[in-house]
Write a protein that binds this DNA or RNA. Structure first.
Length: 594
RNA sequence: GUCCCCGUAGCUCAGCAGGAUAGAGCACCGGAUUCCUAAUCCGGGGGUCGCAGGUUCGAAUCCUGCCGGGGACACCA
């Protein structure tokens, strides 16, 4: 039940009638007609701009058309009044029973209230986290994980067929580096107390002269696992046989850890696509052959970047993709100087693979430090799908980790929070998820460990939890008073007894939930859900406190059982909508505060 | 030098694809507790929406330019 949508249809019906009468031309489109709650409640429940938008095509003055439309609308049985205001707005006031109907609709639907059909089952692919499997997830990954996951849930609620996906960068130089660092840990496992000598042995086997890159303790278990599995069998192997073994083991164990951390955060992606698999199955070759056929590849020399010129810059012919034909600023290289594919090449193949699986709408969630990559990836998907697929990219800005206003040192020493798992253990999964949605994704934010668990109004997480807990508290009180408040009793309540003005206000807020879901999904902005919840919680807290000032507004009226049940139904509807919103965010509602 | 993001109350931030008198929290001032959780609520002061143009019935919102802050800029992902 979406009251705003229903009223939009009612208005469109009137307009269609005007067309039949010849008042409006037959070909005007109604897409710009909006029905929304006015900022000022004195202007009624809803306002429409229909007359202003259509006045010009109709050849009428906005206010004249508005008068006609208002008169037609006022004849409807759900509208109490329709008044023309300002430059041609029509302010609508709905009959209270319309709002009361929302309570019943919420009770009937449960947390499915707000589910929409805007998506019409169309497939959307949301790819997020996609952190390299070279170490545990850290705080920086948390925001993308939450934004991506909640966006996926939001789109699902709005009626899209969503696939949640993780791109595993298990190919390339970084992963080889990981392998050599693990080999060192393997040697340490075999002969402890000889770390320096072992490092020299590992480097002797490793081609090239660079030092080991991944020396964090988190690889120790990988070395031990290899020792337990292979004994000393790896020692005699040549580099090319050895590397795949240590590398694959490391990737497997790192991904296991990554998945465990994501699970602890409540993030569960359905598809994990391996970069190595994409390359080895020939998808990169196929994607580039596709571009080649369309004449979008060439060998050329790029200009050096202006401003900051790399030390080792030298003009060098490279295989380039004509990204400039699709809106990028320069053409982009696909091959490294050693002849292997760049990351971009395999990423093109991956996005093409997603398109081949039917995803004409793709969303990637990235860190803001990858911002320079956006245009080329969008260009590439456009090219590789012949313009049939579109990619939108949500960039997540930095999260600064603080404690009592002081920056937390991100050193790897014990005692400071480095990993995402540590953060979840410290403040809880629900706090992490909710808090990371209290800013829009492209605004930087501070995550203050002391502030996020604070219990006050300036903590959105707490404030919303408190509202839900208060709803449950009312029911505990009702049970003590011996009031029958089963789902059946609530559904059978006489909603006409919900007469108080603040009660009606609250019902109007609940009626906005489906609209909020649809708008947030359309805008791909999950943080709006957090703000809707905050405002709804605020409306409920306000009504609660009114009961302290005016006993007649208290939910439980022992001498008026029928009114009490009706109010309990309203409270349950509020609770349900809050639970529905928390469900989108992936947060578990609480029964009471601790 | 180029590209992207940001600029809204003293501070931290919303602003619902262009709507009517721009909102919330914190901080400040003043109130509400015999009573469903005062962990809350009500009221008050506080703004040239960075600046200047443009688009139109109407701009914080869209376009252009400028100023200021952040980030990214071949062969790393």
């Amino acid at each position: 039940m979406n009251v705003f949508k229903e009223m939009t249809r009612e208005i469109e019906a009137c307009l269609t009638g005007f067309q039949a009468e010849g008042l409006l031309p037959a070909e005007v489109d109604f897409s710009r007609v909006a029905v929304e709650p006015p900022r000022d409640p004195a202007h009624g429940d809803m306002a429409t701009n229909a007359a202003m938008v259509l006045a010009k095509p109709a050849g009428l003055k906005p206010r004249d058309l508005a008068e006609r439309l208002a008169a037609a609308l006022a004849a409807g049985d759900r509208i109490e009044s329709a008044e023309v205001a300002g430059p041609g707005f029509i302010n609508l006031r709905l009959k209270p029973d319309v709002w009361r109907g929302v309570v019943g609709a919420v009770l009937a639907a449960g947390t499915a209230f707000g589910d929409g059909d805007a998506g019409q089952g169309r497939p959307v692919n949301v790819e997020y986290v996609s952190a390299n499997p070279t170490g545990p997830l850290h705080i920086g990954h948390a925001r993308g994980a939450v934004v991506g996951d909640v966006l996926a849930r939001l789109l699902a609620k709005a009626g899209y067929a969503v696939t949640k996906e993780y791109w595993v960068n298990d190919a390339g130089a970084q992963v080889d580096e990981l392998g050599w660092s693990v080999y060192w840990r393997y040697l340490n496992a075999l002969s402890p107390n000889a770390e320096a000598e072992n490092e020299a042995r590992a480097l002797a086997k490793r081609p090239g002269g660079a030092p080991l890159q991944y020396k964090g303790d988190y690889l120790i278990p990988v070395g031990e696992a290899l020792a337990a599995e292979h004994g000393d069998a790896l020692l005699a192997m040549e580099a090319e046989t050895l590397l795949p073994i240590v590398r694959d083991k490391a990737v497997a164990m790192m991904m296991e850890e990554v998945k465990a951390t994501l699970a602890a955060l409540g993030v569960e992606q359905e598809v994990f696509t391996s970069e190595r698999w994409v390359i080895e199955s020939g998808k990169v070759d196929a994607a580039l052959a596709f571009l080649e056929e369309r004449g979008l590849l060439y060998v050329g020399v790029l200009e050096p970047p202006k401003g900051k010129k790399p030390e080792d810059w030298e003009p060098r012919p490279q295989t380039l993709f004509k990204a400039t034909q699709f809106g990028d600023d320069v053409d982009r290289p696909l091959k490294k100087s050693d002849g292997s594919w760049t990351y971009f090449a395999s990423d093109i193949a991956y996005h093409r693979y997603k398109f081949e699986r039917g995803f004409t709408r793709q969303i990637d969630v990235w860190g803001a430090d990858h911002g320079g990559y956006v245009k080329r990836m969008q260009a590439a998907l456009k090219a590789v799908s012949d313009g049939e697929a579109a990619l939108t990219i949500k960039l997540c800005q930095m999260v600064k980790l603080l404690d009592r206003g002081q920056p937390v040192k991100m050193s790897k020493r014990a005692g400071s929070f480095v990993t995402l798992q540590d953060l979840i253990d410290a403040v809880g999964r629900d706090v992490v998820r909710f808090f990371l949605l209290t800013r829009k994704n492209d605004a930087p934010m501070d995550f203050d460990l002391s502030a996020v668990t604070e219990q006050s109004r300036d903590n959105m997480v707490f404030y919303v939890h408190y509202a839900h807990a208060r709803c449950r508290s009312v029911f505990r009180q009702a049970a003590e008073a011996g009031i029958e408040a089963s789902p059946a009793a609530l559904a059978a309540a006489d909603f006409a007894l919900l007469e108080a003005e603040p009660e009606l206000e609250l019902m109007k807020r609940l009626a906005e939930w489906p609209r909020a879901v649809e708008a947030a999904a359309e805008a791909e902005e999950p943080h709006r859900i957090a703000y809707y919840l905050y405002e709804t919680a605020s409306a409920f807290h306000a009504l609660w406190t009114r009961g302290k000032e005016d006993a007649a507004l208290r939910f439980i009226q022992t001498d008026e059982p029928a009114r009490t049940v009706a109010r309990l139904a309203l409270v349950e509807a509020v609770r349900t909508v809050i639970a529905s919103g928390l469900d989108v965010i992936g947060v578990t509602p609480v029964e009471e505060l601790t």
